[in-house]
Every structure is written in C-alpha cells, then in structure tokens.
Design a protein around this nucleic acid. Structure first.
Lengths: 344, 344
DNA sequence: TCCTCCGCATGAAACGTTTCACTGAATTTG
DNA sequence: CAAATTCAGTGAAACGTTTCATGCGGAGGA
C-alpha cells in the first residue's frame, strides 16, 4: 500500500504536522527539516490521499462538465475551452457524457455531488425546470448552464442566441428563393434544438412562407441525419422541401450522405444548412453552410463564471452571457457557387 | 451545508451505524426503522460524502481514461466503448485530455493517483518506458494501455496492429502503381505513429520502392495536416509524391484541404489514405480511404481488462489483446472510381 | 425454568489529511 | 537581566464514512 503522512513523519523523525506543513506551507519549516521530510517522501514514494484532504477541506479541486455527446466535435471544442481555464486555475476538469439520456445525466450529477466537486458545467438534456440542478445549488455547488437558462435563474449561463441562429439560416434560405423548407432536429427537450426551430418558424411566418416541415430526430447524430434524409428523399419531388436546415452539423452531414445516397444533388435539388460549423463541415463532400458558434469561447467563459462563483462565495452575482452566432455560407446552400463545382 | 449521516441519525432517532446500514445493507435493518431513516434522508436532502467513503474504503469507484486528444473522433469512440462497460459495472468513467502534452499527461496521472482511482486507461504520449505508469502500478492502481505495450510488461494492453495497418496502406498504394509516397505524421514519440510509419517503410522496401518521404507533424490534427499539404504542394511535380499516407484521419482531412487549396486533385494528382476510418472520413470532400480500427471495441476491451484486474486482486494475469485493422478503399486513393466522380 | 440463538441496534475505532492552540528555545527589546 | 517576541515544531481534534465487536430483549428448545 501507499505510504501515509504518518509513516513519512516517522521516517523523517518529525511530527505529523510538520510533514503537512512541508506539503502546504513549506516556508514555515526550516530548510534542513524540510529537506529531511522531502527525502522521506521521495524514498517512500508518498502520494497525498486526496480523499482525506477533501474530507477535511469540505470540497474537491475538480470541476466537471457534463456534455450531451462526447462524440460531437462541438462539445469537444467547448471542453477544450473550459479545460484551458480550469487548468490555468490549478484545478482539474473531468468530462462526463450524458449521451442525451436523462437517466445517465442524473446518475452523473448524483455522483458528482457525492464527490463534492467544485462546480459543474452542464448542457442539460431537458429544458425548463431542473430540480436536480437546483439541489446542487442548494448544496452550494455552483452550476453554470451551457445553454440559455431563463434570465432570472439562480445560476450563471453561457449561450449562443439559438433563436437568432435559426433566423439567420432561415433568412438565408428564403433569400435564396426557397419556399418549401424542412427543419431536421430533435429531441425538442433540448433547448437549443427548440430555439433553433423557433427561430426558423418565426422567420418563415414573417416572410409568409407557410411550408415548414419538421422532421424530429431521436438524437443529434450522423446516423439520425441519414434516417431523416431517407424520409425526405422518399417524398415526391413536388412536395419535397427544396432546403433543409439541421439542428446541428452531425445531422447535416448525415442528411448530406442520405440525400446523395438517395440520388439527390446538393444544393441543386436540396440546399442544406447545418449548425455549429464544426471543423468537418468545411471538409464535407459538399462543403456545408453552417451557423457558427464560438465554441471554445463558450467553454472558456463558462469555466470563468464557474470559478468566479466558486471563489467568490456569497458576493457572486449570477450572469447570463449570450454570444451571437454567425452564418457561414458554403456550397451546400449556395446556388451561385454551384456551377463552379468542378473547378474546385 | 449538506447534512451528514450524524444529523440524519439524530433526526430519525437512531444511531449513526443504523443509518449506514440503511445505506449499505438495507436488509439488516427492520422495515419501520428503515423507513424512518429514509424519511429523514429525504427531508434533510442528505447526500453521501464520497470522500469520507473513499477514505474508509481505500479506493474510489471511478475509472479514468487519459486520451491524447478529446477532439479526435477516434478517441471519443474509444471513450464511448469504455464508458459502456464501466457504467455497466456501476462505476464512473472520467475523461482526461493530455492533448499530446507530456506535462499535462503527468499532471493528470498525479491527480488521478492522489484520488486513488480504481484504474486508468491511457494512451501515453511517450513510447517506451513509462516510469509514471510503473509507479501507479506499484501503488496497485491497475493500468491498461490503449496502445501496443511491450509484450512482457506489468500491465494489460489493448491495441490494433499498427505496423500491419501501415503495411495495408502501403500495399494498396504500391498496388495502384505509386512509387513516390509520403508518410505524414507525428510526433513519433507516439507509438502508433511510429508503428504505422514502420509498416509503410517495411512494405516499401520489400517492394524495392525507395522513395518514402516522411513529413513529420507536431500534432495529429487537421491544421497540422493542412501545413503538411502546403509543404507537399510546393514541391515540383517531378519530385512530388503521388500518394500520401497519413497517420490519422484528421491529418488526412487537413492534407486533403491543403492539396485542394494548392490546386491539386485527389486522387488524380495525389492519392490519399488516412487512418482510423472516423465517421467523417466517408463524408469528406473526396471520400477518404482509411485503415479502419475497431474503436469502440478497443475501449470496451480495455475497460473489461481493467475491471477484471481491479476486482481480481492478485490472481490477475496480464493480457495483451491485439486487433487487426482493415483497409477501406474509397475514392481518395482509387483511380478506378475516379471517372465516375460526377455520378455520385 | 434456564440456555441458547437470533434479530436488531449501538457506539467506538479507523481511514489520512489539515488546522490550530500550544510549547520550548532562541532572539530581541526595554 | 527580565520580559516580550519570534521561530520551529508538536499533538490532538475534526472532517464523514464504514465496520465490527458488543449489547439487549425475545423466541425457541431442552
């Protein structure tokens, strides 16, 4: 077994408290003693027991992020942003994956609370009330939503204006002359998905475009996108949407594959716009138009708010940071660019 | 603050040990008492303190995986495989990102050891001796390498035969008539990278193809790939490789972008083969040939070996599981398929 | 009726830290 | 030179669990 502080103390011929001092406040112990302790530590291969330390301290030095899907490049970029800030602060970031499953999300939050983590960044599976999160906060574990929380909530949030994102995409498609448009996405319990759809719906009704077909998907994944495309490709041309807006890029890539497999051309037969502008969007078979979000920035800001709250104690004022998305038009939705396709 | 077991006990009018029994061995406490305790727990919002529990138990119930790059879909798939097994076993998987940085890897391993995690899955940044990992093992924290460890090592490992993978790619390219071939990848301290290169080199020399150009990259990322492509595109046609094999798909996607940007056609001017067969490979601008690895399977097996060792205690026999890779040929390296490009 | 066994509950010890009030010696101050 | 101050180091308490030896009353057996 691993040596404890007690054995180090015995080995170095000092008291237990002195070893602790060497570890935590090296300046208060005289150089020769300090050296003896250090030698003993090295010799015994002593490693601090974090459980004991935490037990005493009352909280840990790790911060957690619970994401909807570790395989989604959007979230991995958010993670990297958060990671940078958290490590800078000398803490540790652990990543948990809810996989869009409320039960798993719940289990993770339970475990994290039992571990008395310093704080939690989370994109919840369910919109609306989050009793589980409220409880974390009651137990004074700060929570930052990576999602647009309600403005008056008892926590900070960081988000990108998803309604606006939906609007940008819809304006663009309408501007390109499309009148039969589909929204592919789901589950709608995820706020981002619902908001993006709402943005599209609002814009279309402003333009008196009535034909919005909503294809609900069970997940935000490539394979869910392929399935959705199959459904669209099967429609008679006269009723098939001429443009598809997807709730994220994974879906869009799946839809792209599915449309091509179904013999349809993008953008000639169907225009396509995704969301997130993950790195792979630009590298797709048909470079994908997408609504860009400041992914790493989102993670960084969320982590900063969390640490601020964790350190600030009572004086902390909750904040809600909302970033603006930006539409990036590429070939998948751009008629102009299409003729030059071979030239690329 | 959060209530402790002691307050629950007082609230329910029982002793401290009884509460613990309700939590851990509900059958030994009489139903009425049990109910009173349960009520008290609910009323006080009691949450177990995992630090204290661990302190007593001597080890935690979490397992960690340290990956080279959370943004690499290869690793996220490995993570999902491991996750499935770990959750099945009632433990929790936390993901740490070394970002190919030895210092960060080291810090993570230190932190994990301090936390007395149940075990660690890791793809190390450095090949060869791993003193840090040996120390974990000495302190009886099982380690499973997601990487081909040396056969006689003091730990399990799970890997795909990377030398074979390199060979498959090289055989294919040579078979397509290529004689000037480039290997793009790095850093070579990562065993997988070194092995893939070795496989290529061996195959080429067997075929008496002398012209292997090695472009070393600082990372296995899309942007590193773009930089490498720039270097290749700048060469005079007579000396430019006619085929490029990349150490992973991210690099290959970057190279693809770079080549196209440099005015070269894939596969007509330069054939391209990647590695991992991530989902995005098939969806790329030019669908990417790639060496496929059983990604989730890798994670599942690694996690199984780890849990086995963690539970088995002394009797455990270390195992080294090696999977076979498989070449998937797509348009990026297939002259035959090229003329039909428009048709897709 | 006495003993034994059983079911249920108790309370103290232990896990490995950190912290803090304290001591003893050395040094400075008046 | 005594008193005050500083400096190093000490040892016990506390953090919240789990475990285990123990106690106790009642039921069943001889």
């Amino acid at each position: 077994m691993t040596a404890s502080i007690k054995e180090v103390a015995r080995h170095a011929g000092v008291s237990l408290g002195t070893v602790s001092n060497v570890l935590n406040r090296p300046d208060v112990v005289s150089p020769p003693t300090r050296q003896r302790v250090l030698d003993a530590i090295a010799e015994l291969g002593f490693v601090r027991n974090d459980s004991a330390r935490q037990l005493r301290a009352g909280h840990s030095r790790t911060v957690a992020i619970v994401v909807l899907d570790v395989s989604n490049p959007f979230f991995t970029d958010v993670v990297r942003g958060a990671e940078a800030v958290v490590e800078e602060a000398g803490a540790m970031l652990v990543v948990c994956n809810s996989g869009e499953d409320p039960a798993r999300e719940h289990r993770h939050l339970d475990a994290l609370e039992e571990q008395r983590v310093r704080g939690v960044l989370v994109t919840p599976v369910h919109d609306g009330r989050h009793p589980r999160l409220d409880r974390l906060i009651e137990h004074s574990i700060p929570v930052v939503l990576v999602d647009r929380g309600t403005g008056r909530a008892n926590r900070c949030s960081v988000a990108v204006d998803d309604v606006l994102g939906g609007r940008l995409a819809a304006e663009h498609l309408v501007g390109q002359g499309h009148r039969r448009i589909a929204f592919v996405g789901g589950p709608f319990s995820i706020r981002q998905v619902a908001d993006r759809r709402a943005g599209v719906a609002a814009t279309l009704s402003e333009h008196r475009v009535a034909d919005l077909r909503v294809v609900e998907t069970p997940h935000l994944t490539v394979s869910a996108g392929r399935d959705a495309a199959e459904e669209l490709a099967a429609l008679p041309t006269s009723r098939r949407p001429t443009a598809v807006f997807c709730a994220n890029d994974l879906l869009a890539l799946g839809v792209l594959q599915g449309l091509i497999a179904g013999g349809l051309r993008v953008p000639e037969d169907v225009a396509l716009v995704g969301y997130d502008d993950i790195d792979f969007a630009a590298a797709a078979a048909v470079p994908l138009s997408s609504v860009r979000q400041p992914r790493e920035q989102l993670g960084r800001t969320a982590a900063q708010l969390l640490l601020e709250e964790a350190n600030d104690g009572g004086t902390h004022q909750h904040r809600h940071v909302v970033f603006q998305p930006e539409l990036v038009v590429r070939q998948s939705s751009d008629h102009q660019r299409t003729p030059s396709r071979r030239g690329r």
